[in-house]
Design a protein around this nucleic acid. Structure first.
Length: 556
RNA sequence: GCGCUUGUAGCUCAGUUGGAUAGAGCGCAGCCCUGCGAAGGCUGAGGUCGUGGGUUCAAGUCCCGCCAAGCGCGCCA
């Protein structure tokens, strides 16, 4: 599906070239031609400020340029009129007939609505959440979760081949720490008076896992036997991952792949990757540790790959992991949705990728700013250590997955967020998400009524859709593809919930102004046309709700 | 100290490569169902876009200084 701005940009480009051939405009480079929807409907359906931008390089009056371009712009099926406005805008009025016909077009081919080809079938991976499997997810994870999953959905619609991945940090020091905590909790659950080790996870989630193991496993673990303890740890991680999967499902998220950090070591990929860096001379031994010479590539400092004690750092496994994404699994683009506290990692990982021959521009990190927890007047950082975490599942149970998703989705990822659970609870009933879902439910009930009254509107004539709110609604519906394309470039998913609200507003407006199913027999033709518009709106709303991972209730 | 990010209505936030009169939801003051769902529609009050300069036809948007907040600068993950 080609978007309207794309069509108009191409027309302007053509007009510009033709005017140049006729020597009415001096030669000049024009980059991308911006066509946008003006805020004021009096300024047309779409508008471009190109003449204002060209005024300087062309050394001509912007109005003059606009007039020339307007003359060369073909009034074709789509374009009905071009109006030149001060101080040099081109305002486009779309043909009513073309707009009306799009309703029929959508209904005859509903699958191609909202699908674009911006991604050109490229392989793209979105990795998100990737929380350590040493505890259940909490509210701070929800933000990245919602942003990542929605981004993946949108990229699919934009024509990418998308994989959603969760990176399981199942190797490393945090696993030992978890094991120590679990053993203590396990002993406690058996009635032993054991203290929790100093450096451990104090959360309830570990207790729950320990008790579950006690209840499930008839063969008790001999806590004096190292082998048994190792088995206990493995069972604990397994159960914790099951819990994380529950958390994720509660938010309507489904991963395509769970990638094990441990697997990087088991099949030698880690060794190979580090070996490669060594061969290329990017690695040096110093103070008994192995270092990556990042500073050669403009980084502030070198970084440790292998510690003095022989264990790999988080950084080095991350290099191997991303090498695997690009080289072994051949992703064209890799997106990591990370917490803002990973910021220091961005540049050095990119520079390591460059050493390995991967284009760092194909590695995109989306840094989601921290969520802080608000308690009365004070705010504090959520921390497992502090024990002030709110489990994700508790939030979802309180306010529902839809409201939860919408809340985190409608804020740009780089803004900080002070999260107030009480406020979230009290506001959940007036969450804007219901405004969108209400529009959907309203349409469903109208369409039900049409069935009840045996109105078959498949032969409705869309040419009867001429009320201002009808035209505005069609325009709004047709905007979705350009929203999807914009997100495919900027990865800013928060545009989607805002667009959805505008779409719902346009529908509620139409509903208020235009009676759909009339009691009057002679209005049957108009009813049928409006039913078509309702069906098209439903298609658009369903698209939005599905992209955002929300339910689409027919009744509320 | 250095780096990254943020600062827009009472609150929570949008503002699309710089464009026309800075928008929405909630809250507040009102109006609209003997008509398909009032979880809706309409009207109003509420803004020196943190602050001071600069760039230009045009700045909430770009550049510089300052103020405030968050994060980062580990042989932690």
């Amino acid at each position: 599906m080609t978007t309207i701005p794309e069509i108009l940009s191409a027309s302007i480009q053509k007009a510009f070239e033709e005017a140049q051939q006729d020597n009415l405009i001096p030669a000049a480079e024009i980059g991308d031609i911006a066509v946008e929807r003006p805020q004021n409907p009096e300024h047309g359906d779409y508008a471009s400020s190109l003449p204002l931008k060209l005024a300087k390089p062309l050394k001509k009056n912007p109005i003059e340029i606009a007039n020339v371009l307007a003359k060369y712009l073909k009034k074709d099926g789509l374009l009905e009129d071009v109006v030149v406005a001060n101080p040099g805008f081109l305002n486009f009025v779309l043909s009513r007939k073309w707009l009306q016909d799009q309703v029929d077009q959508m209904l005859s081919d509903p699958k191609s609505y909202g699908v674009t080809n911006a991604g050109e079938g490229k392989k793209i991976q979105v990795e998100y959440i990737s929380a350590n499997p040493t505890g259940r997810l909490h509210v701070a994870h929800a933000r990245g979760a919602v942003i990542g999953s929605t981004l993946a959905n949108v990229l699919k619609s934009a024509g990418f081949e998308v994989q959603q991945e969760y990176y399981l940090n199942d190797a490393g020091a945090q696993i030992d720490k978890f094991n120590r905590s679990l053993v203590a909790r396990y002993m406690q659950s058996l009635g032993n008076d054991v203290e929790l080790p100093k450096d451990s996870y104090p959360g309830e989630d570990v207790i729950a896992v320990a008790e579950k193991i006690r209840d499930l496993d008839s063969a008790n673990y001999d806590t004096d036997d190292p082998g048994a303890l190792s088995d206990l740890g493995k069972a604990g991680i397994r159960l914790m991952i099951e819990g994380i999967k529950e958390d994720i499902e509660s938010l309507h998220i489904d991963f395509d792949n769970w990638f094990s950090e441990k697997s990087l070591f088991e099949d030698g990929q880690f060794e190979k990757c580090i070996g490669l860096l060594k061969e290329m001379g990017y690695v040096s031994d110093k103070d008994g540790a192995t270092w990556l010479l990042n500073s050669n590539l403009g980084e502030e400092k070198d970084n440790v790959l292998i510690r003095t004690n022989g264990t790999p750092t988080y950084f080095s496994t991350d290099i191997a992991y991303h090498y695997n994404k690009f080289i072994h699994r051949k992703f064209d683009i890799v997106i990591d949705v990370w917490g803002a506290d990973h910021q220091g990692q961005v540049l050095r990982l990119k520079s390591a990728m460059k050493m390995l021959g991967c284009d760092p521009d194909n590695l995109e990190m989306i840094l989601v700013q921290m969520v802080r927890f608000k308690k009365g007047e004070t705010t504090e950082k959520l921390s497992k250590r502090e024990g002030n975490v709110v489990p994700l599942i508790e939030l979802v149970n309180e306010i529902g997955a839809d409201a939860c998703r919408f809340m985190f989705l409608s804020r740009a990822h780089e803004t900080q967020l002070d999260f107030d659970l009480d406020l979230a609870k009290s506001q959940s009933s007036e969450n804007p998400v219901y405004y969108i879902q209400y529009g959907h439910a309203r349409i469903c009930s109208i369409l039900d009524l049409a069935v009840e009254k045996k109105i078959n509107f498949s032969n409705g004539s869309v040419s009867m859709l001429s009320h201002e709110s009808e035209i505005q609604l069609i325009n709004k519906i047709l905007e979705l593809p350009s929203i999807i394309n914009a997100i495919a470039v900027t990865y800013e998913v928060h545009h989607l919930p805002h667009y959805s609200l505008e779409l719902a507003t346009a529908f509620h407006n139409f509903y208020q102004n235009c009676r759909v199913i009339s009691e009057n027999e002679k209005d049957l033709g108009l009813s049928k046309a409006r039913l078509k518009l309702c069906a098209a709106t439903k298609l658009a709303l369903v698209n939005c709700l599905e992209l955002m991972g929300m339910s689409k209730p027919e009744k509320m």
